[in-house]
Structures are given as structure tokens and as C-alpha cells.
């Protein structure tokens, strides 16, 4: 059942590299990451690829296969014809370190700018939350941080200049997760829009499409956040009430 497949793999470092052709054995049941590993073991011991669990649970092996953002460990070779050339390139939105490995530090930077969970003065073991209430944020906590949603988002995919002001779907979802966390006391609605660029998102759902965890990022996190931001900023009753001094606005939490 094995055959020789044609592969094109991007080799090189930032700004300088090319697609390199390989012919490599493929056996039944293998995924693209297996083939990359075979290349390392037999033809290219220095081929750089980031991976870890090889079970779709850690989100390390993100790349683009024939132009589609994918986890290499979750892309089966059986989805290609034996005579089809499989092209593997690094994710496009982040700078290449070498070969298939990119510098994803942008994401860790953005994570730091979002104010952390704030339980107020809750005491250990005293929190009481209903399952139905925790489930909303639990969906977002399924995120394995593969950053494919960040990679595919057109706001930054071809627009480096937006990276400064835009946290990307993963971290806008993180804001949503904290906003919907039943025990969280902070209010991140203002900064979602002002500091983290929620307004850039025009809900094309590319992020949802590539999510290997099948999280409904747009429908369940980004759109509800947009609604909450509107409620915070533009609700006429709240506006009038606050002008008359009968509605007290909550404290906005600044970015961290």
C-alpha cells in the first residue's frame, strides 16, 4: 500500500528560501507530519518542524498544506491523490525562523495585554457556578493555541501594520471567555474595541473554518462581544441614565 509521493517543502530562513522537491515514501494511514518526520530521518536531518503531541491536542504543528492552514498531525495523506504534489509551507502571517517553524511571539505578546481573570474576593472552594453558565466559556477554553485562526485572519494575514492594534480572533475570544466567565469581576468591553481591535473583525468566519477544535469563534465569541461592546458604548438608556446620575457605569478595566 505504500507509494512514492512528491512533496514540495519550503526550506530556508526569514526572507530567503525556496520550495524544495522531495520524493518520499508514504504508507497507509499516515499523516503529513509522518512524512515530514520521514524526510528528517532519511533525507533532511536538519528540516525544522515544530510538533509535540501528534494527536491534535497541543497545537504545535500548524502549517499550510497546499495553501490551507492545517495541523500537520491532523492532515491525512489519504486526502491526497498518490500522484498529487503536496506542498507544505510555514504559516504566512508570522515571520519564518527556519523551514516550517515560525516566530509566533506576537501571540504571547497579545496574551499579556489582556487583563487576567479577576475573581474579586472569592475564597477557595466557595465559588458556585452552574454547568450551563460555565459552558459558554468552556467552549473557548478548548482552544489549543495552534494560532491557525490568527494565521488565516485577513486583518493581519497580509497587513503587518495592523498587528499593533489587533489582538486577533484567538485573543478577542479570550476577552469573550473572561467576559462570559461567571465569576469574573472585570469589565473588558471598552478595551476590546479601543485597544484590541474588535472593530477590525468583519465576521467573515475564516477563523471558525480553520479551527481544529471546531470552536464557533465568530458566532459564539466575536459577535456576542461586538454586541456587548455596543451595549457598553452606545445603549441610549444607559447613556441617558448616566447623564442623569441614576445609572452608575461600571469601572472599565484597563489593558495590562
Amino acid at each position: 500500500m505504500s507509494y512514492e509521493a512528491k512533496f514540495k517543502v519550503w526550506r530556508g530562513d526569514d526572507g530567503d528560501g525556496e520550495l524544495t522537491d522531495y520524493t518520499v515514501e508514504v504508507n497507509e494511514g499516515e499523516v503529513v507530519l509522518d512524512i515530514i518526520h520521514r524526510l528528517q530521518a532519511t533525507q533532511a536531518p536538519d528540516l525544522a518542524v515544530r510538533w509535540n503531541c501528534k494527536a491534535g491536542k497541543c497545537g504545535s504543528c500548524s502549517a499550510e498544506v497546499n495553501g490551507m492552514p492545517r495541523l500537520l498531525c491532523m492532515t491525512r495523506m489519504s486526502t491526497f491523490e498518490p500522484d498529487e504534489t503536496v506542498t507544505v509551507t510555514p504559516v504566512r502571517t508570522f515571520p519564518v525562523i527556519r523551514d516550517l517553524v515560525t516566530d509566533v511571539s506576537y501571540n504571547y505578546q497579545k496574551a499579556r495585554e489582556i487583563p487576567s481573570f479577576d475573581p474579586g474576593d472569592a475564597k477557595p472552594g466557595e465559588l458556585r457556578m452552574q454547568q450551563v453558565d460555565v459552558e459558554r466559556s468552556q467552549e473557548f477554553r478548548k482552544c489549543i493555541e495552534c494560532f491557525l485562526c490568527q494565521n488565516v485572519c485577513h486583518v493581519i494575514r497580509d497587513h503587518d501594520e495592523n498587528k499593533e492594534e489587533y489582538a486577533g480572533p484567538r485573543f478577542l475570544m479570550r476577552i469573550g471567555e473572561l467576559e462570559m466567565h461567571p465569576a469574573d469581576q472585570a469589565d473588558r468591553r471598552n478595551i476590546a474595541q479601543d485597544d484590541h481591535g474588535l472593530g477590525f473583525c468583519n465576521i467573515t468566519k475564516c477563523c471558525t473554518e480553520v479551527c481544529p477544535e471546531h470552536i464557533k469563534i465568530t458566532d459564539n465569541a466575536l459577535i456576542p462581544m461586538k454586541e456587548r461592546v455596543v451595549g457598553r458604548k452606545y445603549d441610549p438608556v444607559v447613556w441617558l441614565g448616566s447623564k442623569l446620575g441614576i445609572v452608575k457605569k461600571g469601572q472599565d478595566t484597563p489593558s495590562a
Binding site: P124, L127, Q131
Partner: peptide, 20 residues
């Protein structure tokens, strides 16, 4: 138990019993 409760105050969202 203390270590688990501590995680909850750091934001962990465990599945719940009927009493919450």
C-alpha cells in the same frame, strides 16, 4: 483539594455539580 480550589481562583472552569 486546596490545589484544585486554587486553580479555580486562577480562572479554571471545571465541570459542575447540580449545587454548582
Amino acid at each position: 483539594p486546596e490545589r484544585i480550589w486554587e486553580l479555580e481562583l486562577w480562572g479554571a472552569l471545571f465541570d459542575r455539580t447540580k449545587e454548582g
